[in-house]
Design a binder for these strands. Structure first.
Lengths: 337, 337
DNA sequence: CTGTTAGCGCCTTCAT
DNA sequence: ATGAAGGCGCTAACAG
């Protein structure tokens, strides 16, 4: 293997000079710089990143902790993260996929151990109370994407405005003339502490309130995230004596469950029932589902850019970004019957 | 930061002894081992992986190169890979997502450079002829998952039997009584060198041949991978004077395009037209699509296990594994009209 | 069994 | 502007 020493010898310079060339120091004459660069090319030398890391005392590695990265929304965010890094960066990325509380523990533990990573990105994994102090004590550059916690305002955060998104979806239905609008979402406290469903529900409440429509508890249903669960919930809700004429689901997956329930009950969509989802995953397009789109890829991008900026400029004050949402109207919404 | 030296001093031993304890050497008395372990706990010491890597001359890092990891099939494979590593391994994983020929080049270049990684996993990225020598010269443990090349039999490979899968799908249709069966797939030479569509087509041909049914070129159509492309192809094929009574699509995405074309032409599925897809992605379940399922997660798992075994035992002869496929019959196939 | 020593490859003062 | 030297934290070979 060819080392910096070989290059120095062949170029007839000290190895300090080679190092300076490698690090773009201005303290080296153009002539020798060119000579050294020539030898580097000739020998096809690339510097050993591990030795470099040990020497400068940085890992040049960042961690991203996220749950269920095979789910479309999460993987799209991750894609944004990866895209920034692959562009042009000396940083490596290690991924911690969290699917169980135990993995969650290991992820945090492992990542926050000294000398493992220079910074971390927490993606769609709302922080639990007991984790707050761990993160603060880690004393590590951390960016939270879609993973807030009131006690963590000192961290950089990139969030999507789930409240606004929920409001947007609901107002679309209200504007169409609906007055009986149901909500189908996730269990609010499920251990993973996902809060997006909750926030979308807040948006729903807000829209109702603004329109002067009282909230009806029988129009609210929650269960574990999933199509089948949502279908069951919707079947019950749509069998009420006075059933809703529209349903806002906290995700496209759940909206599809609602759609299936409607079909099973012989309700036509959108003539008898309007449905709005959330996320705009690929299936939404295929099925023609009206939904709320968020900037998934961009959220990952911006988060990673923030982290890199922070690594570069540790003193940066915390930045809180809020990404907009957008209503995508397709074929599952119409005025009430 | 607490180093091995601090531990040694506090435990009253030499730092070589601490290192031996860390590496489970048998050459250390139980008494001192316990004492050292006690101090390690007390000081909350963890060893610096970077220094370790430099010292042992290994990166303890493996690369995975894969295209479009946000696509369901690919991300599920990746998930298998990640799951093995997160279990319990000293290895880090760096991911190279390939979406353009340029990224592909960078990925190979970067990865195969000395001292970057100890091994690599190539996932669903069939090797191009010009890349073959690069891989061989890299002289690095490499496992190919779903990415074969005839000249690379010296590498470990985990493959799914796309030929058998294509045959399975087609035979299902033939058994139902279909005699006019169309095929809709990817362009065979598209630069990424994806060969799964081609192999599924071979399986289709094989099934026809075994049944003594001649291949009709007008029942074969290919274009870029995509739902809309497949829809256009199917529209043409289904408008033939003697249209096929069944279509086998090389992926679920394309099968959905065919489904849409059928609807647009007023053909009922499965009464007028049977459709079989491939992959069993989530949408297939939602739409009730008959399809072929492959062991995505397991392929990633097995590939990574092979790589780890190889890293452990470099002299291992190459292992070629072939994973089975399975037909999932749902609601889009029936006897011909 | 255990302490000491010499690197691993690179970066960074410190002189010159 | 450049060369020499020390050190990053750990491992492994060598003495004892």
């Amino acid at each position: 293997m060819v080392t910096i020493r070989d290059v120095a010898k062949k170029a007839g310079v000290g190895l300090g000079t080679v190092s300076r060339v490698l690090n773009n120091s201005t303290q080296v004459s153009e002539a020798t710089r060119q000579r050294v660069l020539g030898v580097i090319r000739e020998l096809n030398y690339t510097r050993n990143p591990i030795a470099r890391r040990l020497s400068i005392g940085k890992t040049l590695t960042v961690a991203v902790i996220l749950p269920f990265f095979t789910r479309p929304g999460f993987s799209e965010r991750l894609n944004g993260v990866v895209s920034v890094l692959s562009q042009q960066s000396q940083y490596d990325l290690v991924i911690h996929n969290i699917e169980t509380p135990e993995q969650r523990h290991i992820g945090f533990q492992d990542i926050l151990r000294r000398q493992r990573v220079d910074g971390a990105l927490i993606l769609s994994l709302p922080i639990l109370d007991k984790e707050v102090s761990t993160l603060i004590n880690a004393n590590l550059p951390i960016v939270l994407i879609d993973s807030g916690h009131p006690a963590l305002s000192m961290f950089h955060q990139v969030d999507v405005d789930d409240v606004a998104g929920g409001q947007l979806a609901t107002e679309h239905l209200l504007t169409l003339g609906h007055r009986r609008v149901g909500f189908v979402g996730d269990i609010i406290d499920n251990g993973f502490n996902f809060i997006s469903s909750r926030d979308r529900f807040f948006g729903y409440r807000k829209a109702l309130e603004k329109a002067g429509i009282p909230f009806r508890p029988e129009y609210y249903a929650e269960d574990e995230h999933g199509r089948l669960e949502a279908r069951a919930l919707a079947k019950t809700m749509l069998s009420l004596p006075e059933r809703p004429t529209a349903v806002f689901a906290a995700s496209d997956t759940q909206a599809i469950g609602v759609l299936e329930a409607a079909h099973a009950l012989g309700l036509r969509v959108p003539e008898d029932l309007s449905i709005v989802g959330y996320d705009d995953v690929e299936v939404a397009d295929i099925l023609g589902l009206t939904t709320v789109r968020q900037l998934l890829f961009e959220s990952g991008q911006q988060g990673m850019e923030l982290l890199l900026a922070m690594l570069d400029e540790p003193q940066m004050g915390p930045v809180h970004e809020m990404l907009p949402t957008e209503l995508v109207v397709r074929n599952t919404t119409a005025p009430p019957p």
